[in-house]
């Protein structure tokens, strides 16, 4: 290591530890059946019952945190479909 190493502020091992803890907590909890993917499938199925889903207009995003997961489903519903439903 060069002398610059001495002045490095943030250590990387704690980051590795935290990232792994979060990831493994989620993977262990969802061994076999992943709740988030079940929710994802079922929510999309419910929407698809009422609106014709265009796969290009469905955006699913996820962010896993220490204490929770965020599942974000963003569906563009065309005006035509809303009129039909009304």
């Amino acid at each position: 290591m060069s002398i610059f190493g001495l002045f490095r502020k943030n250590k990387s091992a704690p980051m590795a530890r935290e990232r792994l803890q979060v990831l493994l907590a989620h993977e262990r909890a969802s061994a076999g059946s992943d709740l988030v993917s079940i929710l994802r499938e079922e929510i999309l199925a419910v929407i698809a019952k009422h609106v014709e889903l265009d796969a290009d207009r469905v955006h699913v995003k996820m962010d896993r945190d220490e204490n929770m997961s965020i599942l974000e489903i963003d569906v563009e519903i065309p005006l035509k479909a809303t009129l039909q439903a009304a």
Partner: peptide, 23 residues
């Protein structure tokens, strides 16, 4: 790559037709 918290769909989902490649 530091993207482990953001994986929603994967290669197998795309191959099985459960998700679009862009998703």
């Amino acid at each position: 790559m530091g993207a482990e918290r953001r994986v929603v769909y994967d290669l197998v989902n795309v191959i099985q037709g459960e998700a679009k490649l862009t998703q």
